[in-house]
Design a protein around this nucleic acid. Sequence first.
DNA 1: AATGAATGAGTATTCATTCAT
DNA 2: GATGAATGAATACTCATTCAT
Lengths: 220, 220, 220, 220
Amino acid sequence: MKKIFNHGKNDKHEQIIRAAIKTFARKGFYNTRISDIAKEANVADGTIYLYFKNKDTLLVSLFEESMDRIIGMVKGRLSHISDPIEKLCAFIEMHFELIRKDKFLAEVISVELRQSNKFIKEYKNIKFKEYLNIISGIIREAQEKGRVAKHLMPGILKRIVFGALDELTLIWVLAGDSKYTIENLRRDATEALIHGIALKNNPRGGNSEDPGNDKKSKRS
Amino acid sequence: MKKIFNHGKNDKHEQIIRAAIKTFARKGFYNTRISDIAKEANVADGTIYLYFKNKDTLLVSLFEESMDRIIGMVKGRLSHISDPIEKLCAFIEMHFELIRKDKFLAEVISVELRQSNKFIKEYKNIKFKEYLNIISGIIREAQEKGRVAKHLMPGILKRIVFGALDELTLIWVLAGDSKYTIENLRRDATEALIHGIALKNNPRGGNSEDPGNDKKSKRS
Amino acid sequence: MKKIFNHGKNDKHEQIIRAAIKTFARKGFYNTRISDIAKEANVADGTIYLYFKNKDTLLVSLFEESMDRIIGMVKGRLSHISDPIEKLCAFIEMHFELIRKDKFLAEVISVELRQSNKFIKEYKNIKFKEYLNIISGIIREAQEKGRVAKHLMPGILKRIVFGALDELTLIWVLAGDSKYTIENLRRDATEALIHGIALKNNPRGGNSEDPGNDKKSKRS
Amino acid sequence: MKKIFNHGKNDKHEQIIRAAIKTFARKGFYNTRISDIAKEANVADGTIYLYFKNKDTLLVSLFEESMDRIIGMVKGRLSHISDPIEKLCAFIEMHFELIRKDKFLAEVISVELRQSNKFIKEYKNIKFKEYLNIISGIIREAQEKGRVAKHLMPGILKRIVFGALDELTLIWVLAGDSKYTIENLRRDATEALIHGIALKNNPRGGNSEDPGNDKKSKRS
DNA sequence: AATGAATGAGTATTCATTCAT
DNA sequence: GATGAATGAATACTCATTCAT
């Protein structure tokens, strides 16, 4: 009965997920006890097993449900933008907006995802790939529209973009200090990724010719 | 006496570090047993404790010793290059070279570093910061020489570069497939980071004006 | 709710204490494994840690709870006796009665107490001092009533009495043989401690003059 | 060759025994590592095994060699005394003299002997029995000479005397404070054990009639 | 559904003892 | 004899998971 007013979300399920995010963020997956989460969620230890098969599954569920929300939001917003470069800027902006909105979740995803990716059996992490593929989709669209060089591989570029954003996420969530504002991070990330670190109007104009040249083709 | 022929390295110490790298890479820090490492190193479990205080310390030592070697090598090579943009290209190149040379170590650093950074008490990770600061050093030099825009913050750019490289490291070490070659990764990373994802000679020339604009200043 | 029918005692707590007493008595504290106690108590190893912080604490709890009961009983019974020498006799009698009633506990207290006293951190052993102070209380009362020489120090006498009883406890609990009955021990302990080893009606009357003389005042 | 000048004692053997006494006294047998003793003795860990079969044996050897010396000394001195009560006084005096001379050894014997007695396999502790039998020998002699009541059992009295002295040893070696001097302890121990705690010249003369009476024969 | 007491498999670490040098 | 590096058996304690209530 009460489910009717539950908007499709089970109260306890949500409670536990929130408690897990907070606790994993604070102590890390391996240093978090099920009882820590239960205490944070104000439920009994055993109750967690009514909603999640085990500790691994809890992390996976937490991650997938969060990514679902995020992906939906991001795709929705991008659908209103037509210019692919603008889309990329918007993606970056949303990434930092999400971090600001849910610091704990950002921390868990950024810090715990790699481990779980590798060591939780059977976990293929489709959602994360879907998130990355939003980026490569934008890149491909940009390449078709002549806005991104065709020889750059979207599968690599999406990782470059995500890697950069993820690393900036880390300094934001881990640093106690406020050395950089979210806005600083967003602005530099956008500019550096879109336009590159090097100034284009290089008087010598040289470095655009073969930026990827190896040492055998050193320029004079 | 026998130390004379030891090239300044303790045999068992090295043996254990190598075994730890291999095992942490394969199973992850938390899923690796001391006995796994001992077996891989062909020593008794107890022997590990003659060389390392505990499991945490083993990871930290492994990391610091490796970074020492890497930092020394990278700094040495960069000292022969004067152009800062070339230095950055060389840095990227060396990063991938190192990954190719020691895949296991690359994996451990890429996957385990974040966790250990946060959850191993007392670990401040000076070496990692030193590695990152090689990048920001190059950036600053480039800014002084007018090769990088002065409003970009070196502390952020270094993270963008490292984040991108680190993410590419992951796909190389984790992917069983050979979808991308190290050369692919290096070339795209160099080009994207140095010159940006977007084509500069954009006929409309538009998006370079304010790539970092926030949503309040949306262009029509 | 179920606690109401528990007579104020937790079942498992009691089970474990009893098992620990039995096992410590049989094998000694340092040679007893937690799993030995768990097996004797018919609980899982981990269950012991639900009731006791660790092995040391288990010994301390065992000791303190037992001493509480004993001290209560002894004080209760002594309160009905007015003559201090009779009190001392009653104390001695109760000591042996307790030993007979719980041989295992007597053994643990007699054999393990010294070690734990010294080597278990933070353990000040208030209860044991309280037990000893019952004796010194009786002595002081006797001194006030002129029944015990005032120059004897109660703090020393209490140790002499306890030491003698404790040593007799040992031969009773450790000796497999029944060379001496509890009644033998009680009778001789009472007589020797109250009246002394030497016969008083010594015809020569000599040795009572200065029993505590040092070697410098040797009699011819 | 050097053994000739060694007076039958091996240097290292003595060094190790001394180190063991000191270390066992400080940390207890079970909390002492062989390496602690080796360090204290300025020898290598392995060297200890050239002189003693194992850790248990070291404790036993330490104890037996010490007791041999003590028994020899005590017997020698007692042989010059004819009066048995004087002998007992002398025994008590020597006991405290020994404690003063070697506090560490006193502590080890007093604290560790009970445990080892019970838990070191095959150890029958002949020497300790011999020491106790010096006391019962004196008692028997005194009984023959009419100085000690014949109904008191020498096997029990020897334990009463030893137990009292041992307990006083404990307070002397364990107490950091100097609440009681050795002389206090000796004097009170001698007087209490020889003449009893209760004053003999009780005006009412009552309590000497049946000090060992049980509660069934309570006097009015 | 919810609880939380009970379980017991799992493991880092210690340290007595050995033995090649 | 002397060494001390190496060994590996031994164990207290933790914590994910279960299940009777």
